[in-house]
Design a protein around this nucleic acid. Structure first.
Lengths: 118, 118
DNA sequence: TTCAAGATGTAGAGAATCTACACCATTGAA
DNA sequence: TTCAATGGTGTAGATTCTCTACATCTTGAA
């Protein structure tokens, strides 16, 4: 049911949205609405990016040169801004993901330590 | 060298500091300065919590009832505020860690997916 | 003709981290 | 005895990012 799915939703960890958006765009160009759906579905309804987070993020990514945008018609015949990941964006994504993995590993090491390192 | 260690440092992901502090306190009571050292050392110099993050965080945790504080003398014979994790804090830590694990798994699922879920 | 779904966007609040300070006490070496 | 290094707590303000809540427009089907 929708309700139970909603209750399982959790807030995005700050700093991960760019990574998720860029990753989504590596699967092919997509518009904002489609990106939010892709993240929702591929996270099994756990992550739901709000429009107030997504659109500012997309503008941010475009300003940074990590994505490029073009107005087109969507499948539903609506005007939509399609985003493509750039070469720079791919590099940034790789860096970001590496940093993320390092952070996760570091935190995991601390959280599973049996005693203080001091 | 110190320099290379510094260059490897990365910023903390938002929302993880509370978890790291509470975990550190599960190893035994400790004062702020000691907590920051413990995190630095146990992360192999990757994480360095700044005082401008740490002290506000400790006050936050105390206000929330997740830690209790008491002024004592440190090993170096300095006045220091020693923090202890409370029962409530232990519960919170467990919840936090579970939520973190779920988030990491969810993000990993997306980041390693070969194609769009749509 | 009305309403749901598709689509983009902004304003403002709230949270958490960082940089950059200020301040005080103890100890050991010059 | 002074002075610097180490140990220790704290605040102010900037920045960044996400969220809630709102506004607006289009298309297609009932």
């Amino acid at each position: 049911m929708a309700k139970s799915a909603y209750q399982n939703r959790i807030e995005l960890v700050q700093g991960t949205l760019d990574m998720l958006v860029l990753k989504t765009l590596q699967w092919g160009e997509q518009h904002g609405y489609g990106i939010s759906q892709a993240i929702r579905v591929s996270s099994n309804e756990v992550l739901q990016v709000e429009t107030g987070s997504l659109y500012p993020a997309l503008h941010r990514l475009e300003r940074a040169g990590w994505v490029s945008a073009e107005w087109k018609k969507s499948d539903a015949n609506q005007r939509a801004k399609f985003y493509k990941i750039t070469m720079l964006g791919k590099k940034h994504l790789a860096n970001d993901y590496e940093r993320w993995g390092k952070m996760v590993a570091t935190i995991e090491a601390i959280m599973s330590a049996k005693e203080s390192a001091l």
